[in-house]
């Protein structure tokens, strides 16, 4: 087990290193930070632009290999370089990671809990009205891309604010209102109002996926001998279903949960950008528009690390929860 884990970790490290290098080389070759200075008035002299770009390790007149070596040496010391505006990328990322974390955590927890509950209910009443309804709804939800869903939610939210409720209940932009002076509870309510719609936009798709997944797992388990045994030895239907069937059926879902969390750290890009949350995903899109090579590379390192950590965590969780995996 230890040897397997060590080999796996080593392999992951190599993968991260190669993925990060590829991302940096691609970004450095395709993005053009020099063009940021082209439409400034008055136009800065070429020598100044060159000096500025060289200081930021973004000068396209330096050979790509040399820029890459400087960048890689920095990353190995924990320094991700500086953005096009000159601020250190690392500090910026740390602040934004917190924002993304707050957004994703709630959406993921809510989405997976609701999805598991819906899937389990659908499996128990297979081909009943709830099963059919949830199947139909998840089909529709899976056909709506996040960019459309988020915009629909914003339109519906503003419509409800104006027509139904008469005052601002759903706030559709940012994480909190700037300069709000309303005490602790006032600010908490304000944050909650900002969170409502982005959380719905993140979790609706997750509910659909998790409910389908959980339903299939649950159906596999419901016919198993040990569930029948549990009923035969006198357990109530509810106890047999919750303690024996649901718990076993949850194992693959838990590992899927861990994996989704890693992917969502940058996968919430669309939700963040449309709802104006200043998180990692928004940073990714903005940095591409501003030709910010170092930030693009740093976000992709983070994304690669998150995905690999998540898949490692998913495997470990699976082994911890399922004795058959450990034995096998």
């Amino acid at each position: 087990m230890a040897g397997f884990l060590a080999r796996r970790l080593l392999n992951s490290l190599v993968l991260v290193a190669v993925a990060a290098s590829l991302a940096y080389l691609l970004a450095a070759a395709a993005l053009d930070p020099r063009s940021n200075y082209a439409d400034r008035t008055p136009r800065p002299p070429a020598a100044v632009v060159d000096a500025q770009l060289t200081a930021l390790n973004l000068n396209d007149r330096t050979p790509l290999i040399q820029r890459y070596a400087t960048w890689a040496a920095g990353v190995l010391h924990g320094d991700f370089g500086r953005s096009v505006t000159g601020s250190p990328v690392g500090d910026d990322l740390r602040r934004r990671a917190g924002v993304t974390f707050r957004l994703v955590l709630l959406g993921l927890v809510f989405g997976s809990l609701a999805g598991v509950a819906a899937g389990a209910l659908a499996a128990i009443g297979q081909y009943g009205w709830f099963d059919r309804l949830s199947a139909g709804l998840s089909f529709v939800v899976l056909a709506v891309p996040v960019v459309v869903l988020a915009n629909m939610l914003i339109l519906a939210g503003t419509w409800a604010n104006e027509r139904l409720l008469g005052h601002q209940v759903f706030l559709v932009s940012g994480e909190y209102s700037d300069g709000l002076d309303a005490g602790f509870w006032g600010r908490a309510v304000d944050r909650l109002q900002h969170l409502l719609l982005p959380t719905v936009s993140l979790s609706l798709g997750l509910v659909a996926v998790f409910s389908r997944y959980q339903r299939n797992m649950m159906l596999d388990v419901l016919g198993a001998d040990y569930v029948r045994t549990a009923r035969a030895k006198g357990l109530s239907r509810r106890a047999a279903l919750v303690r024996h069937a649901l718990r076993t059926a949850l194992i693959p879902v838990v590992t899927y949960f861990a994996f989704t969390f890693g992917v969502l750290l940058t996968g919430a890009t669309f939700t963040e950008k449309i709802f104006g949350w200043h998180g990692l995903g928004e940073q990714l899109i903005d940095s591409i528009f501003t030709n910010d090579v170092n930030t693009v590379a740093a976000v992709s390192v983070l994304a690669a690390v998150a995905v690999l950590c998540a898949s490692l965590a998913a495997d470990l969780l699976h082994a911890a929860l399922d004795p058959r995996v450990r034995a096998g």
Binding site: V18, A19, A23, L26, T266, L284, V296, V299, S300, A304
Partner: peptide
């Protein structure tokens, strides 16, 4: 295959 799974697809497509 693993490498491509790890690379953020959105980023690569956007940069290109």
């Amino acid at each position: 295959t693993d490498l491509l799974l790890v690379l953020p697809a959105f980023l690569v497509l956007a940069v290109m």
